[in-house]
Design a protein around this nucleic acid. Sequence first.
DNA 1: ATAGGTTTTGTCAAGCTTTTGTACAT
DNA 2: ATGTACAAAAGCTTGACAAAACCTAT
Lengths: 315, 315, 315
Amino acid sequence: MLFVGTEPGDGLLRIGELSRRVGVSDHVLRAWERRYGLLKPVRSAGGFRLYSEADEGRVRRMQAHLAGGLSAAEAARAALGEDGAGTASAAGGSASVAVERHEGLADRASALALALDELDEPAAQAVFDRLLSDFTVETVLRDVVMPYLQELGERWQRGSVTVAQEHFASNLLRGRLASLARGWGHGHGPRAVLACPPGERHDLALLVFGIALNRNGWRVGYLGADTPLEELINTAVDTSADLVVVAAATPERFAGLTEDLTRLASIVPLALAGAGAAQTMALPVGTRLLTADPVTEAERLLPPANPHHDAPARQ
Amino acid sequence: MLFVGTEPGDGLLRIGELSRRVGVSDHVLRAWERRYGLLKPVRSAGGFRLYSEADEGRVRRMQAHLAGGLSAAEAARAALGEDGAGTASAAGGSASVAVERHEGLADRASALALALDELDEPAAQAVFDRLLSDFTVETVLRDVVMPYLQELGERWQRGSVTVAQEHFASNLLRGRLASLARGWGHGHGPRAVLACPPGERHDLALLVFGIALNRNGWRVGYLGADTPLEELINTAVDTSADLVVVAAATPERFAGLTEDLTRLASIVPLALAGAGAAQTMALPVGTRLLTADPVTEAERLLPPANPHHDAPARQ
Amino acid sequence: MLFVGTEPGDGLLRIGELSRRVGVSDHVLRAWERRYGLLKPVRSAGGFRLYSEADEGRVRRMQAHLAGGLSAAEAARAALGEDGAGTASAAGGSASVAVERHEGLADRASALALALDELDEPAAQAVFDRLLSDFTVETVLRDVVMPYLQELGERWQRGSVTVAQEHFASNLLRGRLASLARGWGHGHGPRAVLACPPGERHDLALLVFGIALNRNGWRVGYLGADTPLEELINTAVDTSADLVVVAAATPERFAGLTEDLTRLASIVPLALAGAGAAQTMALPVGTRLLTADPVTEAERLLPPANPHHDAPARQ
DNA sequence: ATAGGTTTTGTCAAGCTTTTGTACAT
DNA sequence: ATGTACAAAAGCTTGACAAAACCTAT
C-alpha cells in the first residue's frame, strides 16, 4: 500500500503554521534548526521552509524533553535520537506506523492493535491492507481479528479500554469485515442464515463466521445483532435456509429461548455459536454447538447431507 | 368542448397560455426554442405554436436548473437530458424508443429498495455498484441513500417493515458506507469528530455525513452510535479536533445533555445534527444546527474562520 | 426529491455560480487555476469556463486544507493529490494527470489503464485498492479487468504497446488476481479444474473465470497456462472434478486436440472457453462452449445440475 | 529582537468577448 | 411569427499591486 511515511510533496507546513501548531515561535524554530539541526525542512522554490508532519513530531518530542528538565541541546539530541522508531503522538495524527519488511503475523497483529488503540485510522487501514495482501483471509480472521476481538472484550470487562477506543475499533473492523463479506449471498451453494438473539449487540464474530462460511462455498444471509427469533424463523423459512446459526457472547442471551430455539431446530438445521453458547442450552434444544473459533467451525461445517441443491455429495 | 385548441384532452397550449402558466415571457420561450431546441411545439394550421404538457414540464425543469445556478445553455441541456421518463407523445406516437440511457436515479433507487426489501444481497450490491459507477458519491448519498433511510425509518414507525428487512438493509448499507469511508482519517485537512449521544443507535446518517465531510477535505474521526459525551470530549481534545458533530434521530436523545454539550461547545466548535437536533437544544448550548441533509450540510460547512469572501450570502 | 443546485450528470457551472457555491471569488478561482492548476474547466464554445461537480469538490477540499493551515500551494497540491491515484510526482512533475476522485467506473478503469501504461506501480495498486473497496469483485473483474485485458490484447496485436508495458501490466494484474484467488480450492462446493492447452500462455482471463467460479461456490483447481492435456486428464480424474474448463485465446491452440478433448469430455463434463473457443471445435468434441465474459459465464454455470457423468469411473 | 529585502497570494483594473433577455422591424 | 439587433450581465486575459508571511543578517 501507499501512505506509509510522509513524502515530500505531501502536505507541507510553512513556519508560521508549524509555530502555531506547536506553540513555539518561528524564531525559536529557526534557532533550533541552526543550532541543533533539529529540523531539516525542505525549501520552496522561493526559499520558504516547508515542514513535514515528522518535523512537527520532532518539535513536540523536543518540547517534552525540555519540560522534563533537559537542556535545549540535550533535548534536541534526545528528540533526534528517537527518530525512526514508530511514532505515537495522539495529536500528531496519522502517524502511520511504519511497517516495512515482512514481519510475522504477530508483529502485524500488535501493530493493528496499537493503531486501533490510538484511534489512528490511516495506520490501522494500512496494516489491515498489508495483512490481507500477505496472508489469506482465513489467517487474518483467525489469527488476527478474532484474537483482537477476544482481547478487546477482556479489556472492556476490566475497564482498561475507553468507550472511544472500543467504538473506533468496532466501527473500523466492521467496515473491513463488511467489505470481505460483500457478495456473500451470491452463488449456488447451500444457504445459511446468521443472527444474534435479542439483546445481543456484539455481532462481529458472527460476521467473521459468515465470511468464512461463504469462502467455503455457502451463501450467507445475515440478520446480525439483536434479532427476534420470530423474525429469524420467518427468514429461514422464506429463504429455505439449509442452516441457521444463532450466536451470542454470553449465555444469558439464550435464556428463555429454549422453546423458540427448539421449534426453530425442528424446522431447519440449527447451530448455536459464540462464547455464550453452552452445552446446557444446546442439549435440550437438540442442536449443534460451535465452540471453536468461527473460521475453524466454518471449515468443519459440511454442507447439508440431503440438499435440494444437489451439492456434490461425494466422498 | 368546441374548437380552439386548448382542450385538456390533448392539452395543447398556445404560447400565451404557456407563458402565463410558467411565468416566462413568450419572447423567451421562443428564444429558448430557437437557441437551445428546448421546445418542439407542433403547429396549428395557421402556424401557431401548440405546446404539450411535456413541453410545460420541460420549461419547468429548465427553470429549476436556472435557479440552481446553471447557465441557460446548460440548463436547457440538462432539462432535455432528463427527458425520457415522461414521453407523452401526442401525434404519431408509437415506436416507444426504448431510451436505454442511464435509467434515472429514481429507477435505481427503487431497484435498490426492492432488492433490500427482498433480502436479495447480490442484487442490492449490484445496484449499488451501478449507482456508484454512474453517479457521483454525493449524488448517490444525497438522492438515494438518505431518502431510503428516511423512508425506512418511516416504514419502521408504521410497522410496515420487518426486523429482518431493517437489519438486512442496515447491515448492507453500513458495509457499503464503511467502504466509502475508508481512509477518511488520512490527509491534512481540519479534523472533525463525529458521534451519536448515549442511547442513539442509528448512526448511518452520521456515517453519510462523515463521508461527505471527508470528500470535502476534512479528516474524520468516528465514534459512532451510543457514545458518552465524556468520551467524546476526551477524544475531541486529544485529537485537537476542529469540529465536533453530535447527531441523533430523535430529540429525546439530547435531553439532559445541555450541560455537557455546553461544556463541549466551550472547548471546541460544536454542531448538532440529525432529525432530533432542534433549535430548542442548540440555542441554550449556543451552537450550530445542521438541519439539511448530511451531504448538503457537509458542503456548507466551510472550515473554521474563512474570512475571504465578501460576496452575497448564500442563504 | 428536490433539486436546486444538486443536479447530477453534465450540469456544468460557470465561474459565477461556482464562486457563489463555494464562497470563493471568481478572481481567486482563476488564480488557483493559473497558479496551481487546481481546476481544469472545459470551455464553452465562446471560451467561458465550465466547471463540473468534481471541480467543486476540489475547491472544497482546497478550502479545507487551507483552513487546516496549509499554504495555498500546498493545499492545492493536497487537494489534487486526493483525486484518486496521484501521479508519481518526481522530477519535472507536470502532466499531472488528475484522475477525478470517485467518478464512475469508467474513470477508474482509465486511471488504471493509464497507471499501467506508465509503469506506475503504486498508482495502479492504489486504483485497484479503491476499486475493490468501492465495488464488488464481480463488477471489477467484469467491467474493469476484462475490458482492459481485451484492449491490451488488441494493442498488442497492433504493436502499440511495448513489451515492458505488457509485462508490467500482466504481472501486476496477475498478482492482484492471485490474491483474489487465494483459498479457492477450499470448501465443499463442486470441483472445477481449469487449464490452458499447450502453447497457450495467456491465462489471465482463465484466472478471472476461476475467481468468479469460486465466488459462486465452486472449488477451483488451477493448472494455468500451457498444460499438456494428459496432465489435465490425470488431474481431473484424480480430483474427481465436476467440471473441466479449457481456455485459449486463439483457435489454433485447440488445433489437433480434437481427439484428446473428446476423450476428456467422455470422462468428465468439459467446457471450452476463451476467444479461441469456437463452435467448430466444440461440436465434434461434443462439449459446452463458454463465449460470454468469464464472470457472466461463471454465474451461468450451475453446479452439476445435469445428471450426466455422476460417477466418475475411477481407474 | 529588529531591520530590510523577498516570496506568496488575494485582489483589482482595463479592454475586449460571449451569453442571453428583450426590443424592433418586417 | 420570424429574424435581426441591441445591451446588460457575466466572462476572459494580461498585468500589476500590496498586505501578509518569510527570509537573512546584524
